[in-house]
Design a protein around this nucleic acid. Sequence first.
DNA 1: CAACACAAAGTAG
DNA 2: CTACTTTGTGTTG
Length: 108
Amino acid sequence: METLRNKLNTLKLTLFTKKVLLALVDIPLGQVRSYAQIATIVGQPGAARAVGSVCKNNPFPVTIPCHRVVPSKFLSTHSRQDIGNYSCVGGVKKKIALLLKEGVKVVD
DNA sequence: CAACACAAAGTAG
DNA sequence: CTACTTTGTGTTG
């Protein structure tokens, strides 16, 4: 069967990218992960910025819940201004809306 | 080679 | 102690 993992293997993606994307899919509903956390999961702690690059180049806009990825600061503040960025359609505004819809508290 | 959707440590006050 | 600056990291253009 064509799992997402299989598709990722088909595409011309680097190992790091593939791991990151898989980690994003693994994020439970209503939960958020920081870029640093993802970086650590894929085995490259400190490469948070690289993770951001991957999300930005995200090959599957809907399949990959890149909106659940936020800066580590957000984990502490939950502030809307520390939500980070979002390249997909709708921008940061849409990102916030999605998170709220999924049950993630976002302070104004 | 330079830029980027970040993070953590170091320096200055 | 808080605030700003610098370095690390991997992908993409």
